[in-house]
Design a protein around this nucleic acid. Sequence first.
DNA 1: TAAAATTATGTGTTCGAGCACATTTTTGTG
DNA 2: CACAAAAATGTGCTCGAACACATAATTTTA
Lengths: 359, 359
Amino acid sequence: MFFYYIYHMRKKYTIKDIAELAGVSKGTVDRVIHKRGKVSEKALIDVTRILEEIDYKPNLIARNLKNNKVYSICVLIPDYHLDDYWLSCKEGIESVKQEFASFDIQIKTLLYHSKDVNSFLQKSNEVLALKPDAVLMVPSFQKESETIINLLANQDIVVSIFNNNIPNNKIFNFVGQDLIKSGRIAAKLFDLILGNGKVAILYIGANFKNATYFHEKDQGFKEYIKQTDTALSSVTQTFSSENLELELTNFLSQNPDVKGIFVTNSKTYMVAKLIKKHNLKDIKLIGYDLLEENITYLKNNTIQFLIHQNAKHQIHLGLTNLIEYFMFSKKTPKRNLLPINIINSENLSSYTQKETIYE
Amino acid sequence: MFFYYIYHMRKKYTIKDIAELAGVSKGTVDRVIHKRGKVSEKALIDVTRILEEIDYKPNLIARNLKNNKVYSICVLIPDYHLDDYWLSCKEGIESVKQEFASFDIQIKTLLYHSKDVNSFLQKSNEVLALKPDAVLMVPSFQKESETIINLLANQDIVVSIFNNNIPNNKIFNFVGQDLIKSGRIAAKLFDLILGNGKVAILYIGANFKNATYFHEKDQGFKEYIKQTDTALSSVTQTFSSENLELELTNFLSQNPDVKGIFVTNSKTYMVAKLIKKHNLKDIKLIGYDLLEENITYLKNNTIQFLIHQNAKHQIHLGLTNLIEYFMFSKKTPKRNLLPINIINSENLSSYTQKETIYE
DNA sequence: TAAAATTATGTGTTCGAGCACATTTTTGTG
DNA sequence: CACAAAAATGTGCTCGAACACATAATTTTA
């Protein structure tokens, strides 16, 4: 007959327990734990030994209860009314707000025009004036972002970024994807479905020089071609969103051997619309993000694959990293590189369904 | 000039605040909140009004501090020494243990032989004897699992399951994937890379009648063929792991038109090994799970795609659901259907890399 | 109407960590 | 040795919710 009383273990050791074990008071234990000094060598040794022996972990709940501060976080992102890509960030923020509704956390969202530096600067200054405890931002404009990040850091405001990375060692945490890998993945998928032929790598929008993501994805795609024995080739081209139809039609008539199109951002539906309109059935299409319009074309097989950048997950993780750092002194990696999800018409619903199916 | 003082909001309302606002004592507020009765109608109305007005949310940290119970959870899963598929569960348990190291949570793992009902029953009885607060289990044997779940539920032990679902309304939470969708996804992928031809749907192992996952994936695959205008066809076949080489070789010589093989479980590498050995380059292969051996064949292009069931994520979510329910009375959905990840050689590393890149 | 029973309300302690402050012990100096 | 200064140690309160227990107000019963 076995006795399982071992399983129902005692409560965790508290500071009081440790004090008793070491034959000192809890004040001394506290000083040892926090290295506040003013402790005799003997007491230091005794307490340290016991701490190690029992692998003491402080009760984070009790610790946080005492620290009753209202933490404020500013979220600075492109206006989601102007570009559907950012719409999912709104959901991400809402879900974090709900998740931490019982805690003293204040989240304020500021939106800037993603194409307008001045708007970005203006909103950044508003953030500075608010003096929050932390800022989570999308650094759309590299140079200006650098400046703002430095200003914030100088005021001891914790700064995290997501979506795209910029080099700055003052940044607390970055959440995003490896965009070079992302380009490689697109290449691999074309390799599988085409076998050979030319793929056009497209940038759609204004000011592609600022769009570092485009260059990295382009680089990844070409890297794949170079490093593997694929029969694929590629051609890179940028287009404006306004004149896409004309520009793309011209491009395709000049490049009749293009068998695949890789759209490096969420504007994939624009190309899909034209493929559908001109009945270019033979052209395979891979792009980014689960926008409503993209999903429609994915479902009717105009788009073969979408790569899911999951902005919602990104902002969610960025925020929880900050909150758990403040609330529970949780350590956070400098970088969180999220998985790069390959989406087709069949696994799509497994990503978009609500996770909460209550009875 | 704007003043942002509104932003730096006051602390959340406490029971004491509410008591003052309602002109009663905190004891009365507490009785109203917990519906303990012994409150006059007037006080009830006053306090309820204020609670609603300020949308009171109790401080979960303070609440939990008082409730200082050591929660014990048993994990009952197949022995990961016998089948690599379950190995990732070990990591999942470890990461949860680390995550909640500062809390009073005890997790005990019990392993059974996934092919041996008696082993399952024996370990189940050990779990019953341990009288934990909750059990997270893989219900490998449907009938026996039902019995155990009922026994546990009768003892007021919370039961969650993951990996495969069984119908039982006493189950607290199920984490897994939609396996019919999973089969559809495989079909879609073959559709894209083959265009047409016959795909063999394989089950490898003993006792396929117990493997409900196989039937669902098979069903999903065939559903896709039926519902779309694909030129694919399929043939379903079961094999033993011991005689796979002989059986599969025979099967392929009798079915020379098979252009793709869909292995419905993690034993995909076994088929890959034979494809490689007999140099059957033209056969495309899709299977399940990121086992070391599967990854090798994915990287050298013997396997085209792996569908990632992410047992680690499943057990992690199953455990955190239980812990957050106990610790913070967090509500949990009856079902968590996880995304079905499509993995190829290029996005693989984005799933397997450690998420923690500390400075 | 007074005492008893019932109901309503208020008070005080607990949980564990953290920190300010009080007290004790040790060391240094004339 | 006395006494001050410094170092070491101990004590007690706080955070917010929960709950046991004490007290007050009201109703019932003799």
